[in-house]
Design a protein around this nucleic acid. Structure first.
Length: 280
DNA sequence: CTGGGCTCCTGTCAGC
DNA sequence: TGCTGACAGGAGCCCA
């Protein structure tokens, strides 16, 4: 589920409220992708800072408080995997079978619900150290970073021979576009998802860079996509899926030309595209 | 280094 | 109604 827009919508929905909260306890459910990496009791008493996002990861700084740096300082790196969602609420119900992490604070409880458990909550001493450092190190540019433009995309793609759709999903060139938004951005840029990355001309890379930004921006404004169960930390569903032009529309007419949208498989994942609008 | 394929786990839905 | 298989928004890891 959660691609950049959903993660950002989630972040925005609780960032103000958790900033400054003091941890009062931690509850763990079933194991997630990786172990927490710290004794849960050691988090009690730490002060939460501003939640940040990097790609599809969230980083919640936790500090001992006071002015001086403390050996206890660090933070939690959170990832929603395929089916995760976060809720931050005062009145937290009894944990259900898919509630695998609760961070109780004096301002409410941050709860990760994740049926498939591909998500993660991992302690690191800093964003650029430990497990977080390792996971974030290989990420590509943020799509809204000024440095991400057609020239950058073109240069990066020159070194790749995989189909462009897979290069986008890789996340080491540009982060944030997952399966839905990669399909949608390629449609907007009128590029066939099977096109070899190194065959894309500079003008087409320019179009694609713009399309990626535009697609993610629109999704953000619509509150993300809710295909099955995505909710932000207020429990709100997203609306982007209603405006998807190719994703999930196999066999339906293209909204631009009327040709039937096709579904193919790339890297064991579905790709949707219009064979008429999108060129190699 | 690149690229391809597998894997983690559970839920849902289509088809029989 | 019940069973089976396909498929699902991510991405690390192993191997050639």
């Amino acid at each position: 589920m959660p691609e950049l827009p959903e993660v950002e919508v989630t972040r925005l929905s609780f960032a103000d409220r958790i900033d400054g909260a003091v941890v009062t306890g931690v509850r763990l459910g079933k194991p997630l992708r990786w172990p927490l990496g710290i004794e849960p009791a050691q988090l009690t008493g730490l002060h939460a800072g501003e939640v940040q996002r990097r790609g599809k990861y969230l980083w919640l700084p936790l500090r001992a408080g006071g002015d001086a740096a403390s050996p206890a300082d660090g933070g939690l790196l959170l990832h929603l995997g395929m089916s995760g969602s976060l809720a931050f609420s005062h009145q937290t119900s009894l944990p259900g079978p898919h509630d695998h992490f609760d961070l109780a604070t004096d301002r409410g409880t941050l709860r990760l619900t994740d049926p498939r458990r591909f998500g993660a909550v991992v302690w690191s001493p800093a964003q650029d150290a430990g497990m977080a450092g390792k996971l974030l190190a290989s990420l590509g540019l943020e799509p809204f970073d000024a440095a991400f433009d057609g020239a950058h995309l073109h240069a990066a793609l020159q070194r790749r021979r995989v189909p462009i759709k897979l290069a986008l999903l890789g996340g080491d060139i540009v982060v944030g576009a997952g399966n839905i938004y990669a399909c949608e951005a390629l449609f907007t840029a009128r590029i066939d998802p099977r096109t070899r990355s190194d065959r894309l001309s500079r003008p087409r890379c320019q179009r694609l860079a713009l399309a990626i930004r535009q697609t993610l921006q629109t999704a953000l404004e619509l509150g993300g996509s809710t295909l099955r169960d995505f909710r932000d930390a207020h429990g709100m569903a997203g609306q982007f899926q209603l405006s998807a032009r190719v994703y999930g529309r196999a066999g339906l007419p293209c909204t631009v030309c009327g040709s039937l949208v096709r579904r193919i498989v790339q890297g064991q994942r579905s790709t949707f595209f219009c064979p008429s609008c999108q060129k190699r």
